[in-house]
Design a protein around this nucleic acid. Sequence first.
DNA 1: AATGTTATGTTATAATATAACATCTATTTC
DNA 2: GAAATAGATGTTATATTATAACATAACATT
Lengths: 167, 167
Amino acid sequence: MLTNSRLVHQPHDHGRCIDAALNRALALCAERNARMTPTRESVLRLLWQSHQPLGAYQLQDQLATLLGKPIAPPTVYRAIEFLMALGLIHRIASLNAYLGCPFPNSEHSNLFMICTHCGSAAEVTHSPLNDMLQKASDKANFTLQSQTLELFGLCPQCSDTNNGVQP
Amino acid sequence: MLTNSRLVHQPHDHGRCIDAALNRALALCAERNARMTPTRESVLRLLWQSHQPLGAYQLQDQLATLLGKPIAPPTVYRAIEFLMALGLIHRIASLNAYLGCPFPNSEHSNLFMICTHCGSAAEVTHSPLNDMLQKASDKANFTLQSQTLELFGLCPQCSDTNNGVQP
DNA sequence: AATGTTATGTTATAATATAACATCTATTTC
DNA sequence: GAAATAGATGTTATATTATAACATAACATT
Ligand SMILES: [Zn+2]
Ligand SMILES: [Zn+2]
Ligand SMILES: [Zn+2]
Ligand SMILES: [Zn+2]
């Protein structure tokens, strides 16, 4: 079970998360001949400021503040589109929100564990789960193409005590 | 694996689907002292006209046509809210659309298999899958509360040949 | 009939997302 | 380096999905 769960749901040196994400992104761009422009990089950084999914208009606000000038929705959505195409971020359908992907290269089950209290979200890749979904699909003669798997509940921090909100 | 998959993805006597759904709904309303009003019944019927999830504004159009008078969004959303509260319908987050539930009483995993070609959607309840999700949550110290599980792919009809769209 | 409760009508607006076209910037080609 | 091209951003308008707020109507209980 490959996951960033422990990291997400615990206090940690978060600067590393951002740096690592940026480095993965730059490597992937080099590999694919894609351009990591300042706008795109800013959006990716904003999505890695926390481990909580952000909505497009939250991103818009924060981007406008960061760049010190008004930003229109298409700018944000274009960056999102670009980053999604590279697999650098995911969309959380239940939340209409976006989240940095911790392992953009590897195979994905796209399973998310999202805390209903503090909002943090961990991503999980779980082969047995994928196998089971594949089998269930086979059994129903359903040709599986993609999947949206979002779990809601309390993260370790928030279920332990009522610790309040995450850094 | 409890599912309406075979029914959904094959030609069938669809009048029965609607009648059965209505009967289940009426029984549940009686049980819960809830009122199945004409508007609510119409919305439920519309959602059972096909096995394809419908958006709120599609419902609005169809309801307006059916009732022969203009219908405002809140009317539709109120009916949706009521039917969801009773577990008679589900929301498909990836589609912003709503779908009748084929087994509103039983335990739910809320797993959907949605055809990307014809749009039909089957619901599946799968205990081993739920167990596995519960275990994965436990392992991550995540207190599972609810889940959104949506699979996209080709239904038996659409993957077999290029049969085109479903009745 | 009077009262309280539940449902619907109505208007306006919030929140999320995209279309269409103009302009600019970087990359390549000559 | 200038011209041509492709890629990225700016700008305006609008589509799509969902809810807030308040008025009216229907129903139920007494
Ligand atoms: Zn971090
Ligand atoms: Zn939490
Ligand atoms: Zn049917
Ligand atoms: Zn199909």
